[in-house]
Design a protein around this nucleic acid. Structure first.
Lengths: 175, 175
DNA sequence: ATTCCTAATGGACACCGTGTTCGATATGGG
DNA sequence: CCCATATCGAACACGGTGTCCATTAGGAAT
């Protein structure tokens, strides 16, 4: 039952950490692969033997970056169980706790990669919760899609402008 | 009185057109400066003597691309006058009319440059209309900001998912 | 402990896109 | 017509990406 080679685990971990550190330094956009492998003290070819790109490293999961920031698989990704009203408190709370990283990742200036990822994740999450309220017809399914991605857009909008300064209590934000 | 040199007008125009054509071919992201100048049949240095980058060409205005798609300065950027209820019909209608271009420009796969531009434009527009409904206090101004960017996010969300397929009548969409 | 397997190394390389420079050439404006 | 300047085009430096390969280091299995 040979577990996964420790060398692999080690370098993957160190690469992730290097990426996080670099994101905090200069923002995701400006991080280059050379930066990553330099900071991680890892050979170039080593990087490419694990990941194909910067983005893949970012979104590689689970347990990796993107996911680690706003839990995809945590016990409750965002509040309550399915088919419940949505509770975004955890999301905002989590963002507040990792303010620096969040600000570096989300918003206009940084890459759309993560924005897109978060958005589609939110959208899916929302769609799931609201399935019950829409019918089964082709039309209804369409509207469900529209509704969920629009709602995700709303949340993203709040999140972004809320991160740009950092003031009001997250609890209120959700109202 | 000396009008602007016709040579300049000519090359700027041809560059814009080349960019549009290329966006339709491969999407904004993948368009390279070489592509542009090749299609426009223009020297490399000529390009750089007018614009610093692809983005600048895209957003250069008024009269240029980004603006031309969803009018910034048109007679009514989106419905009615100030302090009126928002009417997004023109936006969706316009998007429908230039379906191909819109799809190439907006959404996850294409660059955030234009998305960001549209979003902040929408946000500003919305903020303007709703100023009256918020107080003057620091708090209220903050909420106005949150609200407007979230609302813009909503519209963007609708627009994006609506563009991905292309079915329902835009008029309904706005309800 | 020895052997086998595979990860990691690191340097060289080709490739591509960007942005700059400069002398030669054309083209429009006065 | 003449001058100013826009255009050309080719060369260049720069930086990031992704690949390759021979060599070395380090786990895993027996």
């Amino acid at each position: 039952m040979t577990a996964i080679d420790r060398r692999i685990q080690k370098t993957k971990k160190i690469l992730s950490e290097a990426l996080i550190a670099l994101i905090l330094e200069k923002g995701y956009e400006k991080v280059t692969i050379k930066d990553i492998i330099d900071k991680a003290n890892v050979g170039r070819s080593t990087f490419y033997s694990h990941y194909e790109s910067k983005d893949q490293l970012l979104l590689a999961g689970p347990q990796n970056l993107g996911v680690r920031i706003f839990g995809d698989g945590g016990p409750n990704p965002m509040g309550a169980g399915k088919n419940q009203a949505l509770d975004f408190l955890p999301l905002f709370r989590h963002a507040a706790e990792n303010l620096a990283l969040s600000k570096a990742m989300i918003g206009r200036k940084s890459g759309e990669i993560f924005n897109g990822h978060l958005q589609s994740h939110l959208s899916g999450e929302i769609r799931e919760r609201f399935q019950g309220r829409f019918g089964k017809s082709r039309q209804d399914k369409l509207w469900l899609r529209y509704f969920s991605t629009a709602a995700a857009g709303t949340v993203m909008g709040f999140l972004i402008s809320w991160l740009e300064d950092d003031v009001v209590v997250p609890a209120e934000e959700m109202a």
